[in-house]
Design a binder for these strands. Structure first.
Lengths: 223, 223
DNA sequence: CAGTGGTCTAGACCACCGG
DNA sequence: CGGTGGTCTAGACCACTGT
């Protein structure tokens, strides 16, 4: 018996030809049957390898047209969005939490009629790490009104309560106003990294949060 | 003939049970054979559906142990990193480019010995959109020294020359100093969104770039 | 219309790892 | 050890879409 050819073998071989320049951007690749013959494997194996190359943004495929090397490779970066507690603990810090304010009132746009407004602070080794300004829709999550958020952050409660939801997230830069500067122990006018996230479940907006990090924070990934 | 059950059907059905709470976080799911029987399909179909759920961070699988709903769902966001030109044109702007300065000198850390230092500006409808400060290793890419970057940005040349490379990217916030403020037509002290990227090919660092966007820039995605 | 990729099936073998 | 998922195969049908 000869070793079976795995889809990883095929993927690596194809990728090598592309990165080496044998198959330049725009090139039309041979069909699946032909490649399968060349490698001595089943067409399904080639199909899986190609599927991954599509996912990696290396090639494009269209029925009848065939498979082409993308003209310019699709650059996509994947960021994991950890819970603050985990993020701090992974970096070796001791996690701390502080509820700054809590109020119930009319909801801001898109969150229904009534909402809970929470402001909290997440600490690493006692020093401010992240400032959280959150609205929770009481129309969608009435239970939130009676939860005690003085010892544990709302994000942890939300993850338990509605673990699988849709979200939109955006990154931006913001200036430290007096409130943020006081909370994060930095100078007013500092540049801060900011994350905004809105979360839906079954089409209803549940919560909207603005997270502002202490100065110097970075989000990093490889691709 | 009855309709064939697709892997999408299976994935959607499983996902529904999880989001509905029938299968709470931590639950052990039935084995592939059992699910295949329930849905009246081949095991391979279930396997593919489960594979996607793993990729989406919904479940975890281990041989012998079986498939479990993740305790806390893995939150990951995927951002596409477009060429500036495309990013501007997609938003309906007319792309413009300006080479601000060009110099050859000793390379900064990690880029070898000699490097090309370029500063450029990318414009949308004539207004500054992004400031680019780039180093290109002349050890790794000697050809860059003779390229004319006065009419076209170095990113476009790089994409053609080394289309498939490894990169590390990070996002942060930065303050507008006098140079940035002048380039981006904003007030000194404004908060600006910044991207840093280092690119390797076959283990050698090729280029390092800092991209600073005009005030108010956001990076957004859904997940 | 015809050629390409997309998917399903039924069966098989195997690697891994929990009990 | 034995049960689970991981993968390969050979074959088939079909959807899409360029020519």
């Amino acid at each position: 018996m000869t070793e079976p050819v795995t889809f990883r073998d095929v993927k690596a071989a194809i990728l090598l030809r592309i990165t080496r320049g044998d198959w330049a951007p725009g090139t039309l690749l041979p069909g699946e049957v032909e490649i399968a013959q060349e490698f001595g494997c089943a067409r399904a194996t080639v199909n899986r390898a190609m599927g991954e190359l599509v996912g990696d943004g290396i090639v494009e495929r269209r029925r009848k047209a065939g498979t082409r090397v993308r003209l310019s490779p699709l650059r996509a970066a994947r960021f994991e969005i950890p819970l603050v507690r985990r993020e701090i603990e992974v970096h070796g810090g001791a996690y701390g939490y502080l509820l700054v304010s809590r109020a119930v009132g009319p909801a801001p746009d898109g969150l229904g009629t009534r909402a809970l407004h929470l402001v909290c602070l997440h600490l690493s080794d006692g020093a401010p790490f992240q400032h959280e300004d959150r609205w929770i829709s009481l129309d969608a999550l009435p239970g939130a009104e009676t939860v005690d958020f003085s010892a544990r952050g709302p994000n942890e409660w939300l993850v338990e309560t509605v673990p699988y939801s849709e979200a939109e997230i955006s990154f931006s830069a913001t200036l430290a106003d007096d409130v943020l500067a006081a909370a994060l122990h930095c100078a007013p006018g500092a540049a801060l990294f900011r994350t905004d996230r809105t979360t839906w479940w079954e089409g209803r907006a549940l919560t909207r949060v603005a997270l502002v990090f202490r100065p110097g924070h970075r989000m990093t990934t490889r691709y």
